[in-house]
Design a protein around this nucleic acid. Structure first.
Lengths: 129, 129
DNA sequence: CTTGCACCTGTAGTTACTACAGAGAGTATA
DNA sequence: TATACTCTCTGTAGTAACTACAGGTGCAAG
């Protein structure tokens, strides 16, 4: 059983983030010492690891809640997990496409611009339409 | 001179967003009618168009503030505008790369998963590490 | 014993909006 | 003219996902 600071250290997360995840119900309320300090078990640490890893992979808190909901039922199926993940992958693919389109537009616009120390920029004209 | 609702309509923006942009100083305070209703000129509309277009292109409010700061000086140079834009393009390129990496990881992980109606998912195992 | 850090709580700030509530203004119809 | 309905006004609160503080205990070392 370790305290909050040690858990943050061990998982490479922010100490406040842990309290936040507890508050919004992603993490269970941990045990407490006699004086009220949080004490985390190995399982608590694994669960936080899961949360952090999912966040790194871009899952939203809502998606995470869904995943944890499945995991917590203890009889989730592959199909259920894959559904959430596939949806997430599609969202990411869409974001990538959007950003690429954005970048193409910006590339095109900035190609018009000499970048020299002269006034009146065609890029600004383009933005004003 | 048109009112806020008409301006929102004309620019395809939300009526509340206009007030917000005014509040944070992206838009100048417009004229007012005798009874206090905002009245927007053609120039106001052009400026809002500029703001909306930049936002569509993914510029942050801070970047926009910088661009508008240049535009407002009236003797900005191409070089200055290009610097902001180039930085923004680089940020987008980085985001695209990050998302692609994410997607590769997720694709790899979900390839492990049969997606069938069976319990215990290798995807979940992977997320728990 | 006291110094100093870790931890506790609640709350406010961040970004870029969006959505109210309650009141006054403007317009269309009866 | 009266009424109804829509628009606009203001300030404030909510959203996502944290992060950062303030003011107050607990704990371990010197």
């Amino acid at each position: 059983m370790i305290k909050r600071g040690a858990l943050a250290e061990a998982t490479g997360s922010n100490i406040e983030t842990i309290r936040y995840y507890e508050k919004i119900g992603l993490l269970h309320e941990p045990d407490r010492s006699a004086s009220g300090h949080r004490l985390y078990s190995r399982d608590d640490q694994k669960r936080l690891g899961f949360v952090l890893r999912c966040r790194e992979l871009g899952f939203s808190i809502a998606e995470l809640r869904e995943l944890l909901g499945l995991v917590d039922t203890k009889d989730y199926t592959c199909a259920e997990v894959l559904a959430v993940t596939t949806q997430h992958i599609e969202d990411i693919a869409k974001k990538i496409a959007d950003l690429k389109r954005l970048k193409r537009t910006l590339d095109r616009m900035s190609a018009e611009c000499s970048g020299e120390a002269v006034p009146d920029c065609p890029l600004v004209e383009a933005l004003f339409e």
